[in-house]
Design a protein around this nucleic acid. Structure first.
Lengths: 340, 340
DNA sequence: TCAAAAAAGTAGAACGCTACACGTAGAACA
DNA sequence: TGTTCTACGTGTAGCGTTCTACTTTTTTGA
């Protein structure tokens, strides 16, 4: 510990000062703040005026000790996937004109972060693409309002779930490729830990392949999140004897990497190898990628999750859910140049 | 307001329970918690044992009301630029084995977010690439410990600054291009609001061009952050009569967009147009980009900023600073294929 | 017109911690 | 031996809110 010479900072305006300035009780100011019952328009106006005049802002710590902090925790699994930026803008849109503020945390293993957020009195939590077991999630939900984005386990649960139909999304990807003449369609999936989102996409891929009579071509290659490992796995796979004609990647980020590896190997996209991603992130449109991708409307997911969370904070107890229907956004990476 | 049927959650373990379990005073437990002076090894051990046994975790709100919250605020200007992921991992590395936790906020105009973070009793703030005026920054610094990443105003200040040498970085970019035979080198810069980082890069670009005797070619094109606008501006510029031979972009993200626009127009990179970015983000390596870029070691920046912030929280008052020297990482986007 | 009900406003305890002020015991010193 | 110092512990006020219980005022309705 170091010596504390900390400069004395001027103290904050407190609720007491507002009350005395407005000539009302502290309790009255608190009521205005919380939009609680039993406040006349006249009183509200008086208090508002004093708050504006004094530039008062309630202190979240103090509020937290008795009631809410008006802070929502948002946990992302990583910062590199641009898909999360879409989700985030949805959250922000939902928070506009509310008293709530979002604080983000980023961690692959949400566990420690969840505890830290609970310690910091978040009023509720949104977990995006969590890896945790259903049991653990219920444990968290027992402690504070919880909404999950991207979770498919069908259990009795005490939290809300916002999803896109990942199974359908994968089917759409395969369907699109097959309709464009590709038969040997492989899938690039994620190694452990396997989230339910990935599982659904794998199932969708498998089912569609089987239904199209292409069961014999089913190949799922799994790689970790780390790009260096993806490089190695993909390179090996694409150099092998049974190189596929098309590759469906579980997220755009991996698809971009796939484009990179294929390009390095001198493969032409989409003639030698077609590629489809998932998320329809902003980089898909870039001319060096032109990546066909499944759009799952990240912004809508973020928006809905936030709405549900606030409802839940306000007392809803039953589990709710929301599902977005994905759609294919076709670009050059998956359509063979027409011959003839 | 909705009816509150909120399930009663089991109450937290408090410091009082720990104290009684350990058979010591509440004050003693608090001392252990804060690593404060006047605690014997025996007492510490007893208290630790009880904390572990009861699974006690101090409540940040309560701590904040008297002392610190052990929470640092991190404000990013946006989520889409992968450079910030590098900074973030540096922050995380510095936080390992400390009691501190980082909470992220994302906003182009940090102002409201800064207030929100102060309301939430952050012990200190790290602002990354802030647009605020020096005056406003000092005002913030008067209220809580502050460290900036990417700020170049030479003023009397009450905060710390962590930078890479942006002027040098820009010079290196130009130098590299000129050494590779390009003469008409333009720069893609950011429209308003102009941060000091951008200013430095523009200065570096200008000075190096002049010193190389290429002053007549100096052209700075400015576009907003929004990709759609960048597209329009760039397209116009590259279609114009005086298309440059090379383009130095203020950040990789823009450089990727530039690659996209050039590719759309059928320009070959680097033969028709060389491109250099800034940040050396992970996507530079992808074969569809192969982007030469200036590395400013985001991770180091994040790490140092965090160290300085914690020092400052612990009482340091004098302004400190840290500077990283950038370097060029050469890839195919800036080297003409050798002829003959 | 008056009692009852609804609305508006207030007092003050409580939330979980920190830090100040203080007490005590033993060691060091003269 | 007495005095001073240091190390170790403790008691408790108070941080800025919310919220319950209460009082006062106004409205309603017969």
């Amino acid at each position: 510990m170091q010596k504390k010479t900390k400069a004395t900072r001027k103290p904050r305006i407190t609720i007491r000062e507002v009350a005395s300035d407005a000539g009302v009780s502290v309790a009255a100011v608190s009521k205005v703040l919380r939009d609680a019952y039993g406040v006349s328009d006249a009183l509200r106006a008086k208090v508002q005026a004093s708050m504006d005049k004094l530039n008062y802002r309630p202190l979240a710590s103090a509020r937290g000790l008795r009631g809410r902090t008006y802070t929502l925790g948002l946990i992302f699994p990583d910062l590199r996937n641009p898909f999360f930026a879409d989700v985030f803008s949805g959250v922000n849109a939902a928070l506009e004109r509310t008293q709530y503020q979002a604080m983000q945390g980023i961690s692959t293993s949400a566990n420690a972060l969840v505890e830290a957020m609970i310690d910091r009195q978040m009023d509720g939590l949104i977990l995006i693409g969590p890896n945790e077991q259903a049991e653990r999630l219920d444990e968290i939900a027992a402690r504070l309002p919880l909404v999950l984005i991207g979770h498919h386990q069908e259990t009795e649960r005490h939290f809300d779930v916002v999803n896109n139909d990942d199974q359908l999304g994968a089917r759409l990807a395969v369907r699109h490729l097959v309709n464009n003449g590709y038969r040997n369609v492989a899938m690039l999936s994620l190694g452990t830990p396997v989230s339910s989102v990935i599982q659904q996409r794998e199932i969708g891929y498998r089912m569609e392949m089987v239904e199209r009579g292409l069961g014999e071509y089913i190949t799922i290659v799994r790689a970790p999140q780390v790009l260096r490992d993806v490089q190695i796995v993909l390179r090996n796979f694409l150099e092998s004897r049974n190189r596929p004609e098309a590759l469906f990647c579980w997220t755009d980020l991996m698809a971009f990497k796939a484009i990179s590896v294929a390009t390095e190997m001198g493969l032409a996209i989409p003639d030698d190898l077609a590629i489809v991603g998932y998320d329809n992130t902003v980089f898909c449109d870039f001319a060096q990628n032109r990546l066909t991708s499944i759009d799952q409307s990240g912004e809508v997911l973020g928006l809905q999750a936030t709405r549900l969370l606030i409802e839940r904070i306000n007392g809803r107890v039953e589990a709710d859910q929301f599902m977005v229907t994905p759609r294919v956004v076709v670009r050059a990476s998956s359509q063979r140049v027409k011959k003839g």
